[in-house]
Design a protein around this nucleic acid. Structure first.
Length: 439
RNA sequence: GCCCUGGUAGUAUAGUCCGGUCUAGUAUGAGCGGCUGUCGCCCGCUCGACCCGGGUUCAAAUCCCGGCCAGGGCGCCA
């Protein structure tokens, strides 16, 4: 089929912007065919654009022959443009319809489509991800990523207001000896290199020049996780702040979480409705529990976690039943955290590291960092890491490294919470996991 | 990586336990026809599927073995 040229047609209104008061006005609407209902002498084409839908009504006895032919050729998901006149009517839910003067077919769709774009027949997540671009045409997908946009905008606004400078650190790094998560290796000309799992060391180094920095970007972990809350490429929201401690950055974090929740409630009413989800804006300060308090709480629930260990999934699930919103867990055992988290001065077996939880899911973690070079080297050795591999990082400590603290939010996890989705893949446009590298 | 569950038209499902009634049912979709106010329109006709390989049996969608794939859980996740 020949498709039409866009020519000088430009959208005059999104579907949603058309109101009964505009009766008689000429419009150009552009979008896609969501649905077609043909009653014989009259054909209803539901045109969908980013903002909603509008009905295009074609009367077989009144419309131009060309328009009728175009309307007859349409199928679901065809891209189309309609130049027409708004008609006020009692017979549509919106109180308006568009009577076409001219229809342009701007893009065609191969049928059968791999999933039902009207969402009446559900599809499994695997089918949906295989046809992700089409899946994202559904209301739900659009809603999730518009919420994400508002979240990111709100974060950038608040962090900027607080004096943080947005930075970008390398994704390609030389050393795989940081310990912790497994890294993906890449060929870098004639050297072996790795994809960064976090901006941690770079953002710390930047505190000695820019003082307060934040970074939002993707990072990579080569873990063979197989759960609804892990992907191998994820978006991290990181901050690092000079002359600050755990408590200072926790304050920033809880203010940010509250601000984001408020922003969504204000600006994403329709999206939340589509997602059938409500957001409770948390009160600040958030509840703060020490690791020891959490262990005691679990003990009451007959779950025994030995002091020093990270919380197993089952324990986290139990905490989810006991806590219904965001909360902090502080004073983790030093042995359970990584080398750069600072032990407490009064009791070095505990550290100044914290996690931000939402019910049973870990959303963010952070803490005061070690900023004494000698002690950092000692900590590296204690964790079986070779200080030589960190020589560029350690160099920064020769140039007046300030005391500093920071945190990292798993944006995708936060998005699960904010949109009420149960699988992280729903809130990632093109997820990468152990078994999926495409599309 | 380990454990559990599953794989039937484009999509979502019934049937599988207890083999034969399955020429595999239903919804949606797609094709054709009819219908001038639908909004999950309606009505009629048509199209389209048992993951792959092996085995048991007179007979396998159904039972057994292997593979592949998927979902969920656990572990891993500085």
């Amino acid at each position: 089929m020949e498709i039409d040229r866009l020519g000088n047609w430009r959208r005059t209104h999104y579907s949603r912007e058309i109101t009964p008061e505009m009766d008689g006005e000429a419009v150009v609407v552009l979008g896609w065919v969501r649905d077609i209902r043909d009653l014989g002498g009259i054909r209803f084409v539901i045109l969908q654009d980013r903002e909603g839908t509008v009905q295009v009504t074609i009367h077989r006895d009144k419309a131009k022959r060309e328009s009728i032919e175009k309307a007859d050729a349409l199928q679901r998901q065809y891209s189309l443009g309609v130049k027409g006149v708004i008609k006020k009517t009692e017979m549509t839910p919106r109180g308006i319809e568009v009577i076409p003067e001219e229809i342009k077919i701007l893009g065609i769709a191969q049928h059968p489509l791999p999933l039902d774009i009207t969402s009446r027949i559900p599809a499994e997540i695997d089918v949906r991800l295989d046809a992700r671009v089409l899946d994202l045409c559904r209301d739900e997908g659009r809603a999730i990523f518009r919420v994400q946009h508002v979240v990111l905008e709100a974060m950038r606004m608040l962090l900027s207001k607080e004096g943080f400078v947005e930075v970008h650190t390398p994704r390609i790094i030389a050393s795989a000896t940081e310990g912790g998560a497994a890294l993906f290796s890449v060929e870098y000309f004639d050297q072996e290199a790795f994809l960064a799992q976090s901006p941690q060391l770079y953002k710390e180094q930047l505190t000695l020049s820019l003082e307060k920095v934040f970074e939002i970007g993707p990072f990579f972990r080569a873990e063979e996780s197989h759960t609804r809350r892990h992907v191998n490429e994820f978006i991290s929201v990181d901050i690092e702040q000079a002359f600050a401690t755990e408590v200072d950055v926790m304050n920033v974090l809880e203010e940010l979480i509250q601000h984001v929740c408020e922003a969504i409630n204000e600006r994403c009413r329709r999206e939340l409705e589509v997602l059938k989800h409500q957001i409770e804006v948390p009160e600040v300060p958030l509840e703060r529990f020490t690791y020891r308090e959490i262990l005691e709480e679990l003990e009451q629930e007959q779950i025994h976690v030995p002091w020093g260990e990270d919380l197993p999934t089952q324990a986290c699930r139990k905490l989810g039943n006991l806590h219904s919103n965001f909360y902090f867990i502080t004073e983790w055992p030093t042995e359970s955290k990584t080398f750069y988290i600072k032990p407490r001065d009064d009791n070095p077996t505990s550290c100044e590291g914290f996690d931000l939880m939402w019910r049973w899911v870990e959303i963010a973690s952070g803490g005061t960092r070690v900023h004494s070079k000698e002690f950092l080297i000692q900590r590296l050795r204690e964790q079986g890491l070779n200080p030589e591999s960190f020589k560029y990082h350690l160099k920064a400590f020769d140039y007046g490294m300030p005391p500093h603290a920071g945190w990292a939010i798993g944006l995708d996890r936060l998005m699960m919470v904010l949109t009420g989705r149960k699988n992280i893949r729903e809130v990632v446009l093109f997820p990468r996991d152990r078994f999926r590298l495409t599309p």
